[in-house]
């Protein structure tokens, strides 16, 4: 009893201390929930992540389960969304496939944000030839068509999901570097950066403590929205035969597998396609909502 009271008073004290922060937070949350689309996006994103985490409990059939008697079978009570060309249960495969998509999405975004931030901040902060050199490198990457460069890299490394992730990270980071660079360029001219310098802060300190926290909100938005398009690209690469192998529980691969049976068993390609559509839409709506609360200029 007494410990609960103690805890309560601790929480109260914490809330008093951080009153303005809590108010600001509440305001943002309220703003976010005002937009129905953003809420739908949030629900989809959370649902997707939960499905990926609890896949073993949710999927009715184990990973790689197959019944060759049921090849191309139509949806039934036992197999809600039907069976694919090797007899796997499509519903289970979509659930298992969410793990792959999530992994690819987060891995690629993580690598891109890290690398892009590093390059972008250094280029913008030091300027001059450093900037020139780094930005020409990003130009080279951006000059290639996105998907073609991905395919070239996967072709060179050999197909497989890991290589697809590596290829996509290599191809995607330059746009992050550009975004960060633009942010830092405007922020490093602000008075408070000069003020920080005038009190003796080192370059490193200025970059990490003063520039980064102020330039990060567009990155959060960009990476949320990118999660969706990265999953699509990964699916596209699998679709053209790079990445996941035949019969693997990967959404893009499942669409390819069903391609030949499109007329007599349309469910094989349709349901994984819908899964991609919904998840990608969810991330985009969520990203839009985030942008509305993170960008004060968009606030009304």
């Amino acid at each position: 009893m007494e410990t609960i009271a103690k805890k309560q008073s601790f929480i109260n004290r914490w809330m008093e201390k951080n009153d303005s922060r809590i108010k600001e937070w509440r305001h943002s949350v309220r703003l976010f929930f005002k937009s129905p689309l953003a809420v739908i996006g949030l629900i989809i994103v959370i649902g997707f992540i939960l499905v990926a985490i609890f896949a073993p409990m949710l999927a009715p059939y184990p990973l790689n389960w197959r019944d060759f008697a049921l090849q191309n079978a139509a949806p039934s009570d036992a197999h809600l969304l039907g069976n694919e060309i090797y007899g796997g249960d499509i519903f289970s495969m979509i659930i298992w496939g969410s793990r792959t998509s999530l992994l690819i999405g987060f891995f690629v975004v993580f690598v891109c944000v890290t690398l892009g931030t590093l390059v972008g901040v250094i280029a913008a902060y030091y300027g001059g030839w450093v900037d020139e050199a780094l930005m020409r490198v990003t130009d080279i990457f951006l000059a290639f068509p996105y998907l073609v460069l991905c395919m070239v890299i996967v072709a060179a490394l050999g197909s497989g999901l890991m290589n697809v992730m590596i290829a996509m990270a290599i191809v995607s980071w330059p746009s992050y570097a550009r975004l960060i660079r633009g942010q830092v360029l405007s922020i490093k001219e602000r008075n408070y950066i000069e003020a920080a310098r005038s009190v003796g802060a080192s370059d490193w300190r200025i970059m990490t403590r003063h520039i980064l926290p102020n330039s990060f909100s567009p990155i959060i938005v960009q990476s949320t929205m990118d999660l969706g398009s990265i999953m699509i690209t990964a699916a596209a690469l699998s679709f053209i035969g790079m990445g996941a192998g035949p019969g693997e529980a990967e959404w893009g691969r499942m669409i390819t597998d069903g391609q030949s049976q499109l007329l007599n068993a349309p469910w094989i390609s349709t349901f994984p396609g819908l899964a991609i559509l919904i998840v990608c839409l969810g991330f985009n709506l969520f990203g839009d909502g985030l942008r509305d609360i993170l960008d004060p200029k968009m606030r009304r």
Binding site: N191, Y192, A195, S198, H210, P213
Partner: peptide, 26 residues
């Protein structure tokens, strides 16, 4: 590095526009 030790410690500066001279996130 030595200059950074002097700035803010031995010589410090007040800027023209106080509204912009603080970092908004802290």
């Amino acid at each position: 590095r030595d200059m950074q030790k002097i700035r803010g410690n031995n010589i410090s500066m007040i800027f023209q526009e106080p509204m912009n001279a603080f970092n908004p996130v802290y």
